[in-house]
Simulated scan of single mutants.
Amino acid sequence: MPKGNVDFVKSILENVSFDAKLFAKELQKAVKSLLPYEIEELSNWFYSYTIEKPELREYAVYLTE
Rank of each mutant, 00 (worst) to 15 (best):
residue 1 M to I: 12
residue 1 M to Q: 07
residue 2 P to W: 10
residue 2 P to R: 10
residue 2 P to S: 11
residue 3 K to S: 14
residue 3 K to M: 14
residue 3 K to D: 15
residue 4 G to L: 12
residue 4 G to K: 09
residue 5 N to F: 15
residue 5 N to Y: 15
residue 6 V to F: 06
residue 6 V to E: 08
residue 6 V to L: 13
residue 6 V to R: 03
residue 7 D to T: 03
residue 8 F to D: 09
residue 8 F to E: 13
residue 8 F to T: 04
residue 8 F to I: 08
residue 8 F to M: 12
residue 9 V to L: 07
residue 9 V to K: 04
residue 9 V to G: 03
residue 10 K to H: 01
residue 11 S to G: 07
residue 11 S to L: 09
residue 11 S to Y: 09
residue 11 S to E: 12
residue 12 I to K: 07
residue 12 I to D: 01
residue 13 L to P: 00
residue 13 L to W: 00
residue 13 L to R: 02
residue 13 L to K: 00
residue 14 E to W: 03
residue 14 E to F: 04
residue 14 E to H: 00
residue 16 V to G: 04
residue 16 V to E: 06
residue 16 V to Y: 06
residue 16 V to C: 05
residue 17 S to P: 02
residue 17 S to D: 07
residue 17 S to N: 01
residue 18 F to K: 14
residue 18 F to A: 09
residue 18 F to Q: 13
residue 19 D to W: 08
residue 19 D to C: 01
residue 19 D to N: 09
residue 20 A to R: 08
residue 20 A to W: 07
residue 21 K to W: 12
residue 22 L to S: 06
residue 22 L to D: 01
residue 23 F to H: 02
residue 24 A to G: 08
residue 24 A to F: 00
residue 25 K to E: 07
residue 25 K to L: 12
residue 25 K to F: 11
residue 25 K to R: 11
residue 25 K to I: 09
residue 26 E to P: 01
residue 26 E to H: 12
residue 27 L to C: 02
residue 27 L to T: 03
residue 27 L to V: 01
residue 27 L to E: 01
residue 28 Q to C: 11
residue 29 K to H: 09
residue 29 K to N: 12
residue 29 K to V: 08
residue 30 A to F: 00
residue 30 A to W: 00
residue 31 V to T: 07
residue 32 K to F: 14
residue 33 S to A: 15
residue 33 S to G: 15
residue 33 S to K: 10
residue 33 S to F: 13
residue 33 S to E: 15
residue 33 S to I: 12
residue 33 S to M: 11
residue 34 L to P: 03
residue 35 L to D: 10
residue 35 L to E: 13
residue 35 L to C: 08
residue 36 P to W: 06
residue 37 Y to S: 05
residue 37 Y to C: 03
residue 37 Y to L: 08
residue 38 E to M: 01
residue 39 I to W: 00
residue 39 I to P: 00
residue 39 I to T: 02
residue 41 E to T: 08
residue 41 E to Y: 04
residue 41 E to S: 05
residue 41 E to V: 10
residue 42 L to C: 05
residue 43 S to H: 08
residue 43 S to D: 02
residue 43 S to W: 06
residue 43 S to A: 05
residue 43 S to Q: 13
residue 44 N to D: 07
residue 44 N to A: 08
residue 45 W to I: 02
residue 45 W to R: 00
residue 45 W to T: 02
residue 47 Y to A: 09
residue 47 Y to D: 12
residue 48 S to D: 14
residue 49 Y to M: 06
residue 49 Y to P: 01
residue 49 Y to W: 05
residue 50 T to N: 01
residue 50 T to Q: 03
residue 51 I to R: 13
residue 51 I to V: 14
residue 51 I to G: 05
residue 51 I to S: 11
residue 52 E to A: 07
residue 53 K to D: 07
residue 53 K to M: 09
residue 53 K to V: 07
residue 54 P to S: 00
residue 54 P to Y: 03
residue 54 P to L: 05
residue 55 E to N: 10
residue 56 L to Y: 01
residue 56 L to H: 04
residue 56 L to G: 03
residue 56 L to I: 04
residue 57 R to I: 13
residue 57 R to V: 10
residue 58 E to K: 14
residue 58 E to M: 11
residue 58 E to R: 13
residue 59 Y to K: 05
residue 59 Y to Q: 02
residue 59 Y to S: 02
residue 59 Y to D: 05
residue 60 A to N: 14
residue 61 V to Y: 15
residue 61 V to K: 15
residue 61 V to W: 14
residue 63 L to V: 06
residue 63 L to D: 01
residue 65 E to M: 14
residue 65 E to T: 14
residue 65 E to W: 14
residue 65 E to H: 15
residue 65 E to N: 15
